[in-house]
Amino acid sequence: MTNRLTIRQQVFYFVVSIVINGIGNGLTVALNLGSALWTASAVNIAHASGLQLNLVMMLIALFAIIVNIFLRGHVSWRAILGNLIFTIPFSVLVGWSANFFRQTSVVNLPLPARVLLDFVGIEMIGVAISIYQRLNIVLHPTDEMMQLVRFKLLHGKAWAAQLASFMPPLAATLVTFMLTHQIFAINIGTIFSLLCQGFIIGFADRVIFPKLKHQRI
Rank of each mutant, 00 (worst) to 15 (best):
Q133M: 14
F119D: 04
T28V: 06
Q10K: 15
T28D: 04
W159T: 13
S105Y: 10
S193V: 00
T87R: 07
Q147C: 07
I129E: 00
L33A: 07
A61K: 02
F12Y: 12
F203S: 08
V19K: 00
D118H: 00
R72G: 02
N21P: 00
Y13L: 01
I183M: 09
I85V: 14
A48G: 08
L195T: 05
Q10V: 09
W77L: 15
L27T: 06
S49H: 02
S76C: 06
H74S: 14
V29P: 01
D118E: 14
A48N: 02
V120M: 13
L154W: 05
A98D: 13
G121P: 02
I69N: 08
I188N: 05
T176A: 04
M178H: 07
G126W: 01
F12M: 12
I191V: 15
H214K: 12
V115Y: 03
K211L: 08
A113C: 09
L170Y: 02
A30G: 10
G198P: 08
L117H: 02
Q10S: 15
G121N: 09
I122Y: 00
M145S: 11
Q197L: 12
I186F: 11
W38V: 03
A36G: 12
L154Q: 09
R78Q: 14
A30L: 09
P169F: 00
S35W: 00
H47T: 03
I122Q: 02
L71C: 12
G189I: 09
H181V: 01
R102E: 15
R114S: 09
V56E: 10
V15D: 11
L81T: 14
N83P: 06
I183R: 01
V15S: 11
I80D: 11
V120S: 12
L59S: 10
N54H: 10
A160Y: 09
S41E: 01
G156L: 08
T190D: 04
I122G: 00
A158D: 12
V115G: 04
A185C: 05
V138M: 15
G73L: 03
G156H: 11
I191D: 10
N68E: 09
L81Q: 13
G22I: 01
R102Y: 10
R72L: 13
M178A: 14
H181L: 05
V207N: 01
A204R: 01
I191S: 07
G189V: 06
S91V: 00
V107A: 06
L37N: 11
I131T: 01
L5I: 11
S17N: 04
F184Y: 15
N3R: 13
L5W: 05
M58H: 08
G34E: 05
M57H: 08
G189N: 08
F101G: 05
V16E: 02
Q103Y: 06
I69D: 07
W77I: 15
Y132G: 00
G121S: 07
L109Q: 10
R72F: 10
N136T: 02
G50H: 07
R216H: 13
F70C: 05
S165L: 01
M146H: 11
L170M: 13
L109T: 07
L71G: 07
Y13P: 00
L116G: 12
L170C: 11
G126N: 03
A113G: 04
L53G: 05
F166H: 13
S41C: 03
L55T: 15
I201W: 04
V11S: 10
E123K: 04
I60E: 08
L117E: 08
I125C: 09
D118Q: 10
V175A: 10
